[in-house]
């Protein structure tokens, strides 16, 4: 129960951070821009014409289904949310755990009826909630705008953005584990960036393994990178879902399950570190 209370404090504190406030201001401006600049002419579910910033977006005048037009836009939104959102999330949340664990603060928290594991899980849940809120407001906002502009009801973009959440959960687990060991925002952010780029590069694992002819190094590289979630594949799944296209569940579930297991492992490591540490 106290994990939720810790998460609540994390959320409350985060909303005074200039990064988080900045993020929501940017999202709000983007949505306002979209509301006032995009004008779609929809007739019987087909897009007859459209204007963006007063300029015609479709010149030939032929009516096409709205879904067909918006599908690439949703895909692009899913990719931007995934790659951009993750990067922003890393920078914006890097100092949260080190701040809560800083001398003078952690002692006061640990003297309260808060278990050490609850403290760690609370931080994690709080950060995940910030990420979920940001993603929902941004992507949900776009979906809502399009609902009114294009008379099209879809939750596909929000479902696609959930992949960004899965990716962030995996990244933040590593950041949290590093944050509990070093209590440094810079190292926490560094570890997040490292996992982010490694998770993208991992889709080219076979090429990476070809870089070295040393069998031992290749084996080590193979073993070390095996648990790292494949972010490129996750982003592609997100884009596919956002576009409303079918996904291959047999390939997707292990991808998501693996990322979540990786996240859980990171949180467990953080719990073990905090549990065994003197403050």
């Amino acid at each position: 129960m106290n994990a939720i209370n810790v998460a609540r404090d994390v959320l409350k504190e985060a909303f005074s951070s200039k990064f988080i406030i900045g993020l929501f201001v940017i999202i709000a401006l983007f949505l306002l821009g979209l509301i006032f600049s995009l004008d779609l002419d929809v007739v019987d579910g087909a897009l007859a014409g459209g204007r963006l910033f007063g300029k015609s977006a479709r010149g030939d005048g032929a009516a096409v289904p709205v879904e067909a037009v918006l599908r690439p836009a949703f895909q692009a939104l899913a990719w931007v949310t995934f790659y951009g959102g993750l990067l922003f999330g890393i920078v914006a949340t890097a100092d949260i755990a080190p701040r809560l664990l800083q001398p003078g603060r952690v002692e006061a928290l640990l003297a309260l009826p808060v278990r050490r594991a609850e403290l760690v899980v609370g931080i994690y849940l709080g950060v995940a909630a910030i990420c979920a809120l940001g993603t929902s407001v941004a992507v949900g906002g776009v979906a809502l705008v399009l609902f009114f502009k294009a008379e099209m009801v879809t939750v596909a973009p929000v479902a696609g953005a959930a992949m960004a959440m899965v990716g962030f959960c995996a990244i933040y687990a590593v950041m949290l584990a590093v944050g509990t060991v070093f209590r440094s925002a810079a190292l926490s952010a560094g570890s997040g960036m490292g996992i982010y780029f490694l998770g993208i590069a991992i889709s080219e694992k076979q090429t990476m393994l070809m870089w070295t002819s040393n069998k031992l190094v290749r084996t080590i590289l193979d073993v070390v990178t095996t648990p790292v979630p494949n972010f490129r594949a996750l982003a592609d799944v997100g884009a596919t879902v956002a576009a409303g296209e079918p996904i291959a569940f047999a390939a997707t579930l292990p991808l998501i399950g693996g990322a979540l297991a990786f996240a859980a492992f990171g949180v467990v490591i953080a719990c073990v570190v905090v549990q065994s540490r003197d403050y």
Binding site: D9, E13, S16, S17, Q102, G104, R105, E107, A108, A111
Partner: peptide, 15 residues
């Protein structure tokens, strides 16, 4: 049942 004031208490500045 314990109340504790640490030597150098850090209160979240935004609180």
């Amino acid at each position: 049942r314990i109340g504790y004031l640490p030597e150098r208490l850090t209160i979240p500045p935004s609180f």
